[in-house]
Nucleic acid binder design. Structure first.
Length: 547
RNA sequence: GCGCGAGUAGCUCAGCUGGAUAGAGCGUCGGCCUCCGGAGCCGAAGGUCGUGGGUUCGAAUCCCGCCUCGCGCACCA
């Protein structure tokens, strides 16, 4: 039982003793200003009305009824309109670090997922070009969300969905064909909606080398196959450079070859929610909250992307995923209502909010005060690889994760490049490296730091108390971030905690201090090192021991 | 026009799901190197939280209206 739980229980007993209902749930929060103490409660203010007394009066009564010593309190006082501020005895506060050390690398893990399975689908780029910055944001977000859920006891599958069956693939094949014909001496004629990047030329060259018998690319199907293969490989390299690993790649084309598209159309038709109009087959998605009925089968007899999308999500449900989380750019938000509507129309027992969507806004890349728009390779956009080559994987990850997904994000390349205090990712990694340095210089075996025999009351400096609190709050932050599917909360926590580490490190020494102080500070340093490494790990960022 | 998102310091953004005097990074200005990493630390200036109402002990946070910006509004994905 942590010291907060002890305090909350004591507070509950005191509240009941002065007449509050048995089921009272006192809320405890960290005061913004550390001078106000370690914990604060607004309980007196919420009880004032039901008890018919003034808030401050209730607060005084609560304090009088409270078993302060039993709750590990050094002090309890009334402040402001009726807050009660608590200060824990240092030994009770810092003693919490024993739990950090005992948990080790699993500090911050929770059990909310209860081993249920979750599917996190992200990136899901069409194999029509290298991954761009937006995909990068998705990769960073999706991977971190998957890690967060894993940390909370979910069994997570990272999944990539290739839209390899649509019009855009056709355009890709035609673009490569146009380059082939250019190589054959004909004038260049890239089709409307085609692709212009340098990589198309590379693919044409590859095709030419493999198919000397077809220099003009007349075998469009073969051209398509070569192009898709090349770009899937290309994207794999991008993802590997970024350190993202998928558990499963799902091909849209398989939905057709496996008959799942036809089966879905048949099932939807059977459901009675479809109708024909002007030669096209519609699904009445408006009956399930969409703002407009959607076409399933076009007049030309082909399906819209919406049908395989529904078929695909049926497979997620059938594969047993309790949750399906889709990370997508906000420009796709129109699809959420119709996919859900399609699933509801099938009446398979899929929950209403299935799948869940995490949408992110656009990324603007800035360099030298100007927007960066062009990549040599892709022509019209900045690729993930450009950024990784320029600022490194860790910085790219951090910068793409430090903002809430639904804020637009400005990626400052110059800042991400700089290896100094001004760069948050270096700042955080430096904190970890410094702590590691203490053990290295002191020749301390970190495995021997398990919290036993430590005099926790030795950690009474204000900088120590603040750092201890941050470390003890970490699991709550992770759980909240996982719950909200918002990795940026972890990024912010890391920056704040790194600051506390630097401040503490600068002001207090560890090695060479008297034995009890040194032992206690080594325990604190180890707890901080473990926790920083854990947070960085959740975001897919390395925790270097030296830099 | 409709839907979604965003409007918080000069710039980029947090604000823990309603709490105390609204924070951080960058930028600007000023300090600190006998000492486990100065790749660091300390301090200062800088705000009508877009705007007008409402809810209540208490609102950047919740509700309604309005204004700006972004993204969608396909028989494209």
């Amino acid at each position: 039982m942590s010291s907060v739980d002890v305090l909350r229980a004591a507070l509950t007993r005191a509240a009941v003793a002065i007449g509050a209902p048995e089921d009272v749930q006192p809320s405890l929060e960290r005061p913004r200003d550390p001078a106000h103490g370690d914990w604060a409660t607004n309980l007196a203010m919420t009880l004032a009305k039901p008890l018919g007394r003034k808030p401050r009066e209730v607060a005084d009564a609560l304090i009088a009824a409270l078993d302060a010593k039993g709750a590990g309190l050094a002090e309890a006082s009334v402040a402001g309109p009726g807050f009660i501020n608590f200060r824990l005895a240092t030994a009770d506060l810092a003693g919490g670090l024993a739990r950090v050390l005992a948990a080790g690398t699993s500090w911050g893990h929770g059990t909310g997922g209860q081993g249920r399975s979750a599917n996190v689908e992200f990136v899901s780029a069409n194999p029509t070009g290298p991954l761009h910055v937006g995909h990068g944001r998705q990769a960073a977000l999706g991977d971190a969300i998957a890690s967060l859920l894993t940390s909370q006891g979910w069994k997570v599958t990272r999944e990539f969905y290739y839209n390899d069956a649509g019009v855009q693939i056709q355009n890709l094949a035609l673009s490569v064909q146009a380059r082939l014909r250019e190589l054959a001496g004909e004038p260049l004629a890239i089709p409307e909606g085609g692709y212009h990047g340098e990589y198309i030329k590379d693919i044409a060259a590859t095709y030419r080398a493999e198919r000397a018998d077809d220099p003009r690319g007349d075998d469009l199907e073969a051209v398509r196959a070569v192009a898709v293969r090349a770009l899937r490989h290309e994207q794999d390299l991008d993802l590997r450079a970024f350190g993202v690993q998928f558990d499963h790649y799902f091909l849209e084309s398989s939905l057709y070859t496996d008959g799942k598209v036809d089966a879905t159309v048949a099932a939807l038709t059977r459901s009675g929610h479809t109708f024909e109009d002007d030669g096209a087959l519609f699904l009445r998605t408006t009956a399930f909250g969409d703002d407009k009925d959607r076409v399933m089968r076009k007049r030309d007899g082909t399906f819209t992307y919406f049908v395989p999308d529904v078929a695909y999500h049926v497979t997620k449900f059938e594969r047993g995923f309790t949750r399906a989380i889709n990370v997508q750019g906000a420009d796709h938000h129109g699809t959420t209502a119709r996919v859900r509507a399609g699933l509801q129309a099938l009446a398979l027992g899929v929950p209403k909010g299935y799948p869940e969507y995490v949408l992110h806004q656009m990324v603007t890349v800035m360099r030298g005060g100007e927007e960066m728009k062009i990549s040599k390779r892709a022509g019209s956009y900045v690729t993930v690889r450009d950024l990784i080559d320029e600022v490194g994987r860790d910085a790219v990850r951090y910068f793409l994760l430090m903002r809430k997904g639904d804020s637009q994000l400005v990626f400052d390349v110059d800042l991400a490049r700089s290896q100094s205090e001004e760069n948050p990712v270096y700042y955080i990694q430096m904190a970890h490296a410094r702590l590691s340095g203490i053990f290295r210089v002191g020749e301390v075996d970190v495995a021997s730091i398990d919290g036993s025999g430590v005099e926790w009351s030795a950690l009474g400096e204000p900088e120590e108390r603040e750092l201890v609190k941050a470390l003890l709050d970490y699991p709550d932050f992770v759980a909240a971030a996982a719950d909200a599917l918002e990795p940026h909360r972890v990024a912010n926590w890391l920056l704040e905690t790194a600051r506390l580490v630097h401040t503490w490190y600068h002001k207090h020494h560890v090695l060479g201090e008297p034995e009890p102080v040194m032992r206690a500070r080594l325990a604190l340093a180890r707890a901080a090192q473990l926790t920083l490494a854990s947070g960085l790990g959740l975001l897919g960022i390395s925790a270097p021991e030296r830099m």
